[in-house]
Design a protein around this nucleic acid. Structure first.
Lengths: 348, 348
DNA sequence: GAATCATGAGAAAGCGTTTTCTCAGAGCGT
DNA sequence: ACGCTCTGAGAAAACGCTTTCTCATGATTC
């Protein structure tokens, strides 16, 4: 509970500037000046202050400093699902980059509950100096309304009309087309796209990319099946994939692909001999699946560290209009062993 | 910058209690009482205050509240490596459980730099209401010295002599013995343990467990090879494993096992026909490796959520001595398809 | 009608720190 | 020696909020 006129309780109270001031025989303003080096202080006085601080093991209270300075040196991030390795890697990239500038990261996981996102984002913003929205699932209209209230804000995998909100995007449409092209180049003519969550902006981009692909390759059969976004949903797609007769599979992401690889192995379907499988993202596990997974590599650590750089730019230019930075990453197709030419099957 | 007698700058300042007070024609203390419901306020006045708050879109400033209340509603966690899925899962478990009580989690990743840990822990503790140290790599002596300064503290995979520090542990020694026993039961006589990082407390427990295992099974050949703690190091162990002649492999963790599975596959060594491989932890990928991995399941989401419960107990009993809670989890061996009876090899 | 009691809202203090304002003391020039 | 200027440290205000203290007002009792 807060406190008014009551005498201060000393129980468990940590050492503050007032204690150091008393010990050194100076005012608390002087202690603050010495600790921060913000103004000239007589060297003899400064030495006394430092000795007192060391003796009392003084550490400044970050909350008091935050109130006085109007900043917290923390960044919030809202992720739709912290179980997703792509988001984990983005978090790690952001966390490491921000730490290098003395900032920490506060997590909010909406657990794919879209209605929670705006609430979590507002709350994170109030507690922090800025907020990163990672693949937000809210509608475009909601995002347009919310974005100005969150400044400084960095978006990952979404954009807004707002001219001062940096946005880091991956060209999922182009990536999925390149993966499809890879399969076609290998000779595949019957493809399936295992699509992801409906509210996922990156899924919509893949769908747009595949529409374009169909237009350019009318001779290719490209079916759509729902594959979700995790292992289990990929694994659960095994029967539908086998029934489809397709020889080339484009999974929504690496997790779906891994689940499918496992399901196909259980079913005795050989990858890539019988079916080729691709993923997306190139999470760290993708190299180590059996067989190692062909995928479109998204520089997910770089996304996190660039998100920090864009955030830092806004923080440092507080109050000034900034030129919006729209960064778009092109995924790079990483060809591994899960794709090969389709088997020549006897006519039946 | 802080500010003294200067007139308040209104630029970019968010709406505060003073603004609501002015709008409603009451004092800021009354606004605080209405927003918190802490004391009786005339219903008519309360309605005016609420209307003003809504009209001005007032949201309390968490920093001001934290200073007044002496709490931040955040928990810090220090992890040795945020790239490790076990730590990611612990973080997720902690984050979700704490969020249910209105707490957020602040991350500090020491990136396996042992000398950074104490500094990060102290800093996290000052910014937060408590701190969780996850598999800290510092020495026992350093931990004993640091622990009292971090109260309230929860330890994961370490213990201290301190009687008021809850500690959540996994009996790695027992788990590795059960895995070894599983291989022996299948008929394996030549085993290798791919050991993990030297500073890892859980690795030491496995070594102790395997010493015990050797005593109880003098007829079993059990070699030690260094296998590190990630994919690459597991993968890099492939040749040494093949050269060892062992038919049963105990990998330090699931990542090492996955890397090894991939390396063996590349080498044309069949799992489990030619070599059986086990992991540890049961990260979400373990079910989906090819073949699915036999492993010792650590309830890593439960570790995170129990860490929050222990933390919350300490926060709620502030200043009182608490009975130390030592929670120990027994790993559960999850038998999947990466282990089988050793092949009968022609004598050569 | 006066005295007493209860209640609720404003004044004030405080949480810990930063920084502006003020003033005392030292130094310099005449 | 006096006046002026400069410097540095203490006093004070502020950041935003919570809660204690104080007092005015209305109700109740005698």
């Amino acid at each position: 509970m807060g406190r008014g006129h009551m005498a201060r309780r000393n129980t468990n109270r940590r050492v503050g500037i007032a204690d150091v001031a008393e010990k050194a025989g100076v005012s608390h303003a002087t202690v603050s000046r010495v600790m921060n080096g913000n103004a000239a202080v007589d060297p003899g006085i400064a030495a006394r202050v430092r000795a007192a601080a060391v003796e009392l093991k003084y550490q400044p209270n970050p909350v008091g400093r935050s109130l006085a300075l109007g900043k917290t040196d923390t960044i919030g991030i809202v992720v739709p699902d912290l179980a997703n390795p792509t988001f984990q890697a983005i978090l790690r990239g952001l966390s490491i980059a921000a730490a290098q500038d003395g900032y920490r990261v506060l997590i909010a996981d909406s657990s794919e509950v879209t209605s929670e996102e705006a609430i979590l984002a507002g709350e994170a913003r109030r507690r922090c100096d800025g907020v990163v929205l990672c693949a937000p699932r809210m509608s475009d209209a909601e995002l347009e309304e919310l974005a100005p209230t969150l400044h400084p804000l960095v978006l990952i995998n979404r954009t807004t009309i707002a001219t001062n909100t940096p946005s880091l995007s991956v060209d999922y449409g182009q990536g999925i087309q390149e993966l499809a092209q890879h399969l076609v180049t290998l000779g595949h003519r019957r493809l399936v796209f295992l699509s992801g969550p409906e509210h996922s902006s990156s899924n919509r981009q893949r769908l747009v990319g595949l529409d374009q692909f169909r237009k350019e390759h009318p001779e290719i059969e490209l079916q759509m099946l729902y594959g979700g976004s995790n292992f289990d949903s990929g694994h659960d797609s095994t029967e539908a994939i086998v029934a489809s007769g397709a020889t080339g599979i484009l999974a929504f992401n690496d997790l779906v692909a891994m689940g499918l690889l496992s399901g196909l192995h259980e079913r005795g379907v050989r990858v890539p001999e019988d079916i080729s499988v691709t993923g997306f993202d190139d999470i760290p596990f993708a190299k180590y699946t059996t067989p190692p997974l062909t995928t479109a590599a998204v520089p997910i650590n770089e996304l996190g560290s660039l998100a920090w750089r864009r955030m830092r730019e806004q923080i440092q230019q507080a109050g000034e209009a900034t030129t919006q930075a729209q960064d778009e990453f092109s995924p790079r197709v990483e060809i591994r062993k899960s794709t090969a030419a389709p088997a020549l099957k006897p006519a039946s």
